[in-house]
Design a protein around this nucleic acid. Structure first.
Lengths: 111, 111
DNA sequence: ATTGTATATTGCAATATTACGATTAACAAA
DNA sequence: TTTGTTAATCGTAATATTGCAATATACAAT
């Protein structure tokens, strides 16, 4: 096999897993942190900043874009990337909701 | 290639990515949600609840355990699993910190 | 000792991810 | 038009993940 059985899970579970997967690589975390810091940048900046090949950075940018968490505007010969603030907040709330489904008794002990 | 270059990233970036990877599968999300709800359970419960093979659930449990987010106590012939509340809170704060590194001007527009 | 229950591990096939060189495409400037 | 810059895409190799049947391990009960 080797193919996730999405059908047996809820929409919420699949969505959270999808967004977590976007954050599941340090390069994508680094890209997002840099974008938050500088507000906007082009692919070449990230190649410099992070130290991976241009093709690799471009691939990570595509994944971030396909998840909707960043946007890219064509600006002459370069592409200007920035965070999609609305999606960012949605994802933030998604994780926040997940971590705050505290059970009545938050016991630490098994059995 | 095909191997993440962890050395060029910060500890924080690697750690966040590692924790995100744990949440990057709906089965593991489902296991954690179930554990939070019922406080503790055994592997067989999850096989029933989720609908994946026993070997597959066991594998996901091992990943969750190796990340430290759950604990397993041997209880006779079965193993009782529960959330590690301390690690859970650490991970919660890790994500919270990541999503709250708001830049001064949270502009939505590129260039 | 044998049987049953519960879980971990092994081995394997299918698929996905990561990384990068090489190439392509789009545009700007000379 | 030619040259340079920027970024996307293609192709490929190395590695990782997912899922499960089969097997192994551990213990409880008969």
């Amino acid at each position: 096999m080797g193919l996730t059985k999405s059908a047996i899970f809820t929409e919420e579970q699949n969505h959270l897993a999808r967004m977590a997967k976007v954050l599941a690589h340090p390069a994508r975390v680094a890209i997002l942190q840099y974008l938050v810091k500088v507000n906007q940048c082009i692919c070449g900046d990230l190649v410099h900043e992070i130290g991976l090949a241009q093709a690799t950075i471009s691939q990570h940018l595509r994944e971030l874009k396909s998840a909707g968490i960043i946007k890219g505007n064509i600006e002459g010969t370069s592409v200007c990337y920035c965070i999609d603030a609305e999606v960012w907040q949605d994802v933030q709330q998604l994780f926040d909701g997940f971590f705050n489904i505290n059970s009545t008794s938050q016991s630490d002990d098994c059995c």
